[in-house]
Design a protein around this nucleic acid. Sequence first.
DNA 1: CCCTGCTGGTGAAACGTTCTACCCATAGGG
DNA 2: CCCTATGGGTAGAACGTTTCACCAGCAGGG
Lengths: 331, 331
Amino acid sequence: MVSIKDVAAHAGVSPGTVSNVLNRPGKVAPATRERVEAAIRELGFVRHGSASTLRAGHSRTIGLSVIDIGNPFFTEVAAGVEDVASELGYAVILGNSAGSPDKEDRNLRVLAEHRVRGVLITPSGEDSGRLDRLREHGISVVLVDHPAHRPDQCAVAVDDVAGGRAAVAHLLARGARSVVCVTGPLTIRQCVERRDGARAALRGAGLDPAELRVVEAATMTARAGEKAAAELLAGALPEAVFCANDLLALGVLRALLRAGVRVPEDVALIGYDDIDFAAASTVSLSSMRQPTYQLGRIATELLLDECDNPDTHAHQHIMFQPELVARESTQ
Amino acid sequence: MVSIKDVAAHAGVSPGTVSNVLNRPGKVAPATRERVEAAIRELGFVRHGSASTLRAGHSRTIGLSVIDIGNPFFTEVAAGVEDVASELGYAVILGNSAGSPDKEDRNLRVLAEHRVRGVLITPSGEDSGRLDRLREHGISVVLVDHPAHRPDQCAVAVDDVAGGRAAVAHLLARGARSVVCVTGPLTIRQCVERRDGARAALRGAGLDPAELRVVEAATMTARAGEKAAAELLAGALPEAVFCANDLLALGVLRALLRAGVRVPEDVALIGYDDIDFAAASTVSLSSMRQPTYQLGRIATELLLDECDNPDTHAHQHIMFQPELVARESTQ
DNA sequence: CCCTGCTGGTGAAACGTTCTACCCATAGGG
DNA sequence: CCCTATGGGTAGAACGTTTCACCAGCAGGG
């Protein structure tokens, strides 16, 4: 394994100079720089990141912790994160919490051990304690798709209450009177707020929000959506269904169609996130669009700005508004 | 920032003992272990991964480099990887090459600098030189969804020629005589082999393989599929279309339906990968199913076995067979 | 009572960088 | 001609672990 010392010896300079060539090439005379660079190439030297992290006290790595990497919503967020990070020379360590606080904890511990520069996280619960602990260890945290826990922190979110309200308002405007909300675990903030938005829409239409039937699925996947639909099919069908995300909605859709229920004639259906596949499904799916890729990009830009310019950095709380996309499933 | 020394002082032992508590708890007397663990909790100590990597010479981290993290095929592979890795206490650094060899190179360099224990990669090209260079640096490499470059290397793959052959044989058995193959970049091995399989199927049916019209899309996404379909719609329509993956197929499907072409009555359509959304699309999509999650799991198990038991490890070349899933799009 | 072996523990030397203090020319200002 | 500044370089001390050699005590065998 070739180290900076070998390079130094080979180029006839001191290790310090090699380090300068690597980190501050301007500070070293062109001729010597040439020689060092040649030595690096000839010896196939590659810098030992851990050594440099150890000495420098910080690494060029950030962590990304999401709830479900199988959900296209999060992959698109991750794509935005990755693009910005790699533009600025940062590596990304990905953690998938799969909705389990335990797993999230383990992932955060790994990130802390790696002394990542910062962490982007869509928290799966409301416990901000461990995030505060990260900050105490000098690791910046930016919340993604989640409002800020505290003022001295950046966060990029989308207004989920407004989204839920708009979705259900759309169903009501279409004439539906009985609405079911198929949600994911109510430990997830997004689910709670979208449901609350749905209730607000009922209230807005002069209906009793308590009338909203809520079916809570164990996960936010298509399979869980199918199960939830089975529960609906067991009783009297509602006129409309609002799902907390598109995966659930696609599962509900599949189960309804298989049972001979027509969408939207018998039951109208709307999802949330507007993932690519929503437009391509059997009956194309109405949904609430979010600036997903931008969410990832902007969060990463904020995080890296906070890391690289700690003095000039101003914390920001950004809140996007979702947008209704009406398709066949609510025609 | 609290270090192992602070813990040692607080517990009244030497740093070496703390290290033993961390890494070989059996070697230290229960009473002292208790004391050290208490100190760790009280001080909120978290081990500095870089320091331990530096000293130990290797880290508990692996790299995963995929071609397109936006493709559900790769997310499912990643899920398999992540599950095994986290079971065994490894972290995963994710790299998305987005089909660009440059980006792949940059990602591999980052992984090399991090001194990852090993790398799982679905190579985007056929150049194995940089992978060999990784091995020279003591980083094990396991190929995912790609046959081995060399005997002293593990690889987990799926028989793409057989898959292409089965897919097109299915189209032919259904009565189609003119078949178009919509493929991704022919720099990607999977695309080449699936096309070759398609040709083999034509040969097998007594047709001229040169008759297979091949449309090469720039990327393997739904959008690229739509573009490719536009090209098809400009001329005489074939009786059947075979797409190199489901994203392309979903794009082709969308464009055909929008143009008023009936699927499968006018044109039969089959994709590849059998991602979840294939079954849920407008016209449910026939596809070739692969053991995607298993691909990730097994590759990771092989890699970590190679890392943790280098002496007993036996290199394996695993080749799965894909399975035809016939749905509406080829009824 | 000496020797041997075991258990539980210590001290200090690495690992490969980065960074600070320092050095030596040479150049220019007064 | 001295004094200071500057550019380009060096030496060596960190950074926080792990590991290896070593040691102290103690038990048991001869």
